[in-house]
Design a binder for these strands. Structure first.
Lengths: 177, 177
DNA sequence: AGACCATACCTCGCTGCCGAGGTATCTCGC
DNA sequence: GCGAGATACCTCGGCAGCGAGGTATGGTCT
């Protein structure tokens, strides 16, 4: 989950753990703040995998800092995951937003458009939270105001995103014609 | 995560595992299908905790079914979690939607309104995914179309939900005056 | 009769995340 | 000069969810 975000932030510039945590907190911390017990093991995993290196920073700070630098393998892993994200990165809104935050790193409009098309396909599937047999039920079928709301909000979100997707795809794909 | 959903569905009527899985798949499976390795241990945990009982069903079906019945303790646990959800149930959209799906079980408009007010407070906090120092950055500040989109979609979602929240709160709280 | 699929349930080992706890340094106010 | 708080890093145990694998029965098609 955080792998993509860590690599994405480090792609912009090297950071040390504490700064990284602030960035991650901004990105997804409103929903769920990231804890040290998550962050540092995640960094260690990425280091072990050779995706980043930790360089001790001799400088001024309070505690012995380690600046984290993305390696070439790390950059490649980031671009890979952006180019061919797992289905969960497409379908889960939190993960999708994380992906969107770094999709600009994928320096190829056609590849970016391909990713947006996958999201478009996902959003275009007929889906509900509740089914009558195999038929997805609409908001209007519930007298329960909460399930109504759930469906109405989901519909509004989907429509907003579809609008943006179509506009952005037109830009990305129009550019190359 | 699935505890609430399992208890919520069983509150309506007893189900066996397979039916439960279909309901859960409808509710959150579009994003991430639930696997057997998640479902059955979760059922077992709830059984061990005394929140449900499994009754063997002598009937017709293919394999020896066990119908799951909510106990009184299970009903109490469900109502508890609906009445006083954890912060993560309020802030994470997937969890919030799960909560909404069953909030009608909380048979008390004032308690329902209190839960909606918590969501309202959460959505009213100024928040972004990116910050310039301490200042949340708006969509307009990004030339990157993906981060722009991310912020625009989030804003549209929030506004749709705020509209629904205000309307529903007016109904719930207006009723008692 | 045999192949095949849907139904129905269960276990195991792995991974990732979490909270709680710990260590150490620097700065700033009093 | 001393405590408080921010900075910065790390470890440990526990748990939830997952994929892969396994077992068995009933219906359906050929």
């Amino acid at each position: 989950m955080f792998k993509l975000a860590i690599l994405g932030f480090l792609h912009d510039r090297p950071l040390h753990g504490y700064e990284l945590r602030r960035h991650l907190s901004a990105l997804s911390g409103h929903v769920q703040p990231i804890s040290d017990g998550t962050l540092y093991p995640a960094i260690k995993r990425l280091e072990t995998a050779g995706l980043l290196v930790r360089q001790p920073e001799p400088g001024s700070a309070a505690a012995p800092r380690h600046t984290l630098h993305l390696t070439e393998a790390g950059r490649a892993a980031l671009l890979d995951q952006l180019r061919e994200p797992e289905q969960l990165d497409i379908s889960d809104e939190n993960r999708w937003f994380t992906l969107l935050a770094f999709l600009r790193h994928l320096d190829d409009p056609a590849a970016q458009a391909a990713v947006l098309r996958r999201r478009l396909a996902f959003l275009s599937e007929p889906a509900s939270f509740f089914y009558d047999g195999d038929r997805p039920m609409g908001a209007e079928e519930f007298s329960d105001p909460f399930r109504r709301g759930q469906l109405l909000i989901a519909r509004a979100t989907t429509e907003a995103e579809l609008g943006w997707l179509h506009a952005t795809l037109a830009e990305l794909e129009g550019g190359k014609e």
